[in-house]
C-alpha cells in the first residue's frame, strides 16, 4: 500500500480498489456486497442522491426558519399582562436590559449559526455539482465545522424549556411556550440531517477523475 504517497498520480481509494466502506461499523467489503457482513447495514459506495437529499432538507429548513422568526417563541405573563417575544425580539430585549452576554449567546446560537450553516450547506451542494476545479480540503474542513456546530443551535429551545418549567408562579409571573419553539427545533433537526446526508467523498472523487 502506498498510502503515504499522497501526491502520487492516482490515490488508492476504496471505490477504485473494488471495495465499499460500511458507514456504521467502518469495515471494508467487496464492492458487490449488498449488506455488511459484520453489522448487516445496507452498503453503497457513495450515499445515493446525497446532494439532492441535502438540498431538499435544506430548503425545508429555510422555509421553516420563516415561521420560527415570525411567531413568538414564548409569552411572558407578568401581573396579568402578557407580552409575546420572538427570537429577534428576545435578543433586543436583552440588549435593552444590558445583559449583553445572554444576548450574544442567543444571537450566535439562534441567528448566526443556523444562517451560516444554511449558507455552508448550500455552498457545499453547489461545489459538489460544479464541473471545474474545487478545493476539496477546504470544503471538507467547512463540512466538519458545519457538522460540529449543528446541535449547538438547540440552545435556544433548551433555554425556553427551562424557563417554562421554572417560571410558573401563577398570575405573578409565568411563561408559556410559543409555536416558534417547534418550528425552530424542526429547523435545527432538518439542517442536522441535511449535513449528515451530505457525502464529502463525492468531492474527493474529482481527484480520482482528473
Amino acid at each position: 500500500m502506498h498510502v503515504h504517497m499522497v501526491n502520487s498520480i492516482k490515490p488508492k481509494t476504496a471505490a477504485n480498489s473494488g471495495l465499499v466502506n460500511c458507514l456504521v461499523c467502518h469495515q471494508l467489503a467487496p464492492i458487490a456486497a449488498t449488506h455488511c457482513q459484520r453489522c448487516n447495514t445496507a452498503l453503497s459506495s457513495r450515499v445515493k442522491n446525497s446532494v439532492q437529499i441535502s438540498l431538499s432538507l435544506l430548503v425545508t429548513a429555510i422555509l421553516l426558519y420563516i415561521p420560527a422568526n415570525i411567531y413568538p417563541i414564548m409569552s411572558t405573563e407578568l401581573l396579568g399582562k402578557t407580552t409575546q417575544s420572538t427570537i429577534i425580539g428576545g435578543i433586543v430585549l436583552f440588549l435593552e436590559h444590558g445583559s449583553y452576554f445572554v444576548a450574544a449567546v442567543i444571537l450566535i446560537a439562534s441567528v448566526i449559526v443556523p444562517i451560516a450553516k444554511m449558507f455552508a450547506l448550500a455552498w457545499l451542494c453547489y461545489c459538489a455539482t460544479r464541473a471545474d476545479g474545487i478545493k476539496q480540503y477546504e470544503l471538507t474542513q467547512l463540512y466538519r465545522v458545519t457538522e460540529f456546530i449543528g446541535k449547538w443551535s438547540m440552545v435556544d429551545v433548551f433555554v425556553v424549556a427551562i424557563l417554562v418549567a421554572l417560571i410558573q408562579l401563577g398570575e405573578i409571573m409565568s411563561i408559556k411556550v410559543g409555536f416558534a419553539a417547534t418550528a425552530f427545533a424542526v429547523v435545527v433537526i432538518m439542517t442536522m440531517v441535511s449535513a449528515h446526508q451530505f457525502d464529502t467523498r463525492i468531492l474527493w472523487d474529482r481527484v480520482d477523475q482528473e
Partner: peptide, 20 residues
C-alpha cells in the same frame, strides 16, 4: 469479512485507503 487485510481502513470523509 476481510481476513486478508484486517488493518486496511477507508477514510469516512475522502474514501482514501489507509493502512492502520
Amino acid at each position: 469479512m476481510n481476513k486478508a487485510q484486517p488493518h486496511l481502513h477507508a477514510c469516512l470523509e475522502c474514501d482514501l485507503l489507509v493502512n492502520m
